[in-house]
Design a protein around this nucleic acid. Structure first.
Lengths: 205, 205, 205, 205
DNA sequence: GATGAATGAGCCTTCATTCAT
DNA sequence: TATGAATGAAGGCTCATTCAT
């Protein structure tokens, strides 16, 4: 199962992307992909173990890359001395979010696939997996700063989950709606401030 | 195609709900629904033109009801004299949102179906359709108040779309996660404040 | 899933038999059966849950009938007072074996299918299942007569299994080789005497 | 197509045996064999024309060896002066049968393959081919001794076929059931006596 | 000797739907 | 109203085999 080199493999990739994008994972047809790539359906299986593996090949580099980026940033942020945590929570730190968006634009098609066509695959809960990471680190962060949001009941894991989920959904709208990079920068900045203000309603008594 | 009270029809409805909830629209099986309802698969077609029509029968009352409620509220809100618009934007007006949530809980199962099982149907963009309404009215509202958010570039239709989308996604998490009514009230209130604060970053210079 | 009546069903049966007979269970093709029967492949599944169920429909009446006959005969034989058990062991009692053979000829095709084409189905161990019944009852019989074959080591379950297996294989050769009923009667009688003599080498010290 | 001692060839053989033993001829996978042997599927075809040829390479030495042994023994036996044929028929001569069993144990795996995994190959009738040889020589033998079994109708080629078939099935149960050499000796001796007695019911008026 | 690639035929099964009854 | 029967299309996938390199 070669990951590259083959001309055929290179030809399959865009055909697979197209088909998954058109129909979503479940309704995408291996036969159609094969036909588009000019090979037999069986030929596909020389390059990918099965349909899911094919989808994975398309999106997992982007998924892993983004997750790694995200995790590292969270870790870095958490290591800062308390006083340097100028921004309330990580995701709303301007620097970090810019890297995040940049990564998305570097793999735009992959994220389009991931966000809009992954139902039926292990990736269907991608956003949720980001949310979980975020919530985990945010809880840590709140505790470490001694903020009373949790003890006072202003914040609960569930609310944080909802808010985080809303935020990431918001972010990935740039993908859903094919925003240009330029527009995205400006909108994301607004979104950032928006959620920052929101978080302050939670974090400040 | 009788939409009415046939005993059979009444028996089909819950079976269909169950199947769609279990498997989602596309993977739901007409045969299974029929079997559960104690009739033949063909019998289903006396009551519903096709699978999609069946799904529609389940969710469209709730969809229409909520949209109507939403639209009327927006209209009402817009008719207020400028000075009485105490809240920044409709959705974050405490009263209105309470009605909205109440309606959801009055048709909880239907919204569960709509939110989690509609991929592949015309209803898959339900949240988006709410968002569009909201954006339309919010634009009107901003213009009518003379706020400079739009002219200054702090707000654009696209940002508003993103934010609104995030908000409604947040709201419908109560359905996705089967929150109790009680929990929901508290979380929604937090969410409301959260977004209210966010909107203020847009609406105030 | 109607077991009869339908004209189509009646048309499928011989086509299925033919295909299974030609190619054996595993290589038999549902498509071919359907085509022969003049219906679509999908149509088959209206009448049989799956390929295995189809095979079962063909052979299980015969299987059950023969097993029942066999079991009842064994039970009857076992109930006889010791002194009336003139023959050494059941299978070699002339009466019983004749019924057995008669039953086979009454369902000759079914047993042909069963013996020659059942690899890959639950029926692949049909002969073995007869052997097991036989061995069980023969053990009982030997014990009940006080014969010392077992205690002396002249007979062991394993030898009995081998011998019994050889016997039934011998019997079903009439099916494998399409013997006429007439020939079979004579051959089976010889076989019977043959094994009777053999058993005597085991049962008499 | 080198039949010889290539290292690769030597590596393939046990892998092929394993796969055929596990799944039977038809369900065995060339790919799996190749993978086990550490080569590509295509590589197999340097060494064997096709799947069947591969199977043949595994079993035909044993098959030929046993057949040769068997034929020679039959010939030898037939050359004896009438009076020296102390045993009724060949197979039940203690000496010969011991050689036969010894040969089987010297190539146990090969016979396991042959007996339990040959469906779908030309070897599926291996036992039958032994039976045919046996019947041919037994007929010769009976005629040469002037025994009236044939003319009286007590023996016919078909009965002899059945009986012989039953016998060999019995013999090869030692392979099917993985009997130890020790157990086999004792069971085969019993089986021999069993069939000897049986034959006497045919050969003696 | 060996391989990666490719193939074509085939597998069983499921589906929503239609239609005569 | 309801149904049993039937359908065509499609589904993903596996297989032994071939062939250029």
């Amino acid at each position: 199962m070669p990951k590259d080199k083959t001309k055929t493999y290179q030809r399959i990739i865009p055909c697979a992307k197209k088909e998954f994008l058109d129909k979503g994972f479940e309704k995408a047809s291996m036969r159609t992909i094969a036909a588009d790539a000019g090979i037999s359906a069986a030929g596909l299986y020389r390059h990918f173990k099965d349909k899911e593996a094919m989808f994975e090949a398309l999106v997992s580099p982007a998924v892993n890359g983004l997750k790694e980026l995200f995790l590292l940033a969270q870790e870095d942020f958490n290591k800062l001395p308390k006083d340097n945590k100028q921004e309330t929570v990580f995701d709303y730190s301007s620097d970090k979010i810019k890297n995040f968006i940049a990564y998305i634009y570097d793999h735009f098609d992959d994220f389009k696939l991931l966000i809009t066509c992954a139902e039926g695959t292990v990736f269907s809960d991608f956003i949720d997996s980001l949310v979980e990471i975020e919530v985990k680190y945010t809880l840590k962060f709140i505790e470490s700063t001694g903020n009373d949001a949790l003890t006072s009941g202003r914040a609960t894991p569930e609310l944080m989950h909802i808010v985080s989920s809303a935020f990431f959904s918001g972010v990935f709208e740039i993908v859903v709606h094919d925003m240009t990079r330029e527009s995205a920068d400006s909108y994301i900045e607004r979104l950032r401030r928006f959620f920052l203000a929101g978080w302050n309603t939670i974090l400040t008594p």
